[in-house]
Amino acid sequence: MLRKAATATQITHLQRLWLYVVCALVIVFLVAPTLLVVPMSFSDSRYLQFPPESWSLRWYEAYLGSLEWRRATVVSLQVAGLTMVVATITGTLAAYGLHVSRVKAGKYVSVLLTLPMIIPVILLAVGIFLTFAPVGLNSTILGLVLAHSILAIPLVLITVTAGMRNFDINQEMVARSMGASRPWAFLTVTLPQIRNSVLSAALLAFIISLDEVVIALLIAGGDKATLTRRMFLALRDEIDPTIAAISTLLIGLSILLLALSQFLQSKRD
């Protein structure tokens, strides 16, 4: 650690100490509320309590022992898995098309596709509910997958577009001149080189669906309730540490997937 300035203009770590303190405070402020649930989930108390007076795994047992919670978990994983597939394929195709297209309108299409990221989700949810109602898509897996894909496609688009930026499209042209059809050239030449971006985008799509609550609140009723919806409703009725246990599991899974996604992106060639 640099304690003494080597030149007149050099700033030592000591002089910058205040900056480090501010940064640390910001990080604590951002992360602490999330991490608060972790110790609470291991509490022995019947109420959400911090700090816990005694420790146990009883709320994890309660979660795993409940048929309702298990069913909601299965719905959530199903929806997240399918959303991942749908959003990754459509988002990747869109990113590819917009990248190779010389059409001027491409820029506008790109903006249009990222619109769901800036529109308040509650508005989106109401719109989706009203659209789905006449065609009977509310409270169905398909409806949830489509709705979550709307949210996930912009992220896939952005992630894959970034990956395509380093790809030389001449490679695909060469492959086609050598006898490969366009889809085959994409699969054998382009896709292997943007693979990490696509996988990273897929994981993001999964997380988005898994963590989504607003749309699920409006359109995921009955036995198609997702985990997040059930958690929200449970919070309203009673303050039960089971929520903390589930939250801890969700946070763990999300962090794991996000880290994996970041790792894949950093390995981009």
Partner: peptide, 14 residues
């Protein structure tokens, strides 16, 4: 292109 039976070489090798 893939049915034209041509060989191609680009500036950046590709």
């Amino acid at each position: 292109p893939h049915k034209r039976d041509i060989g191609m070489v680009f500036q950046n090798y590709a």
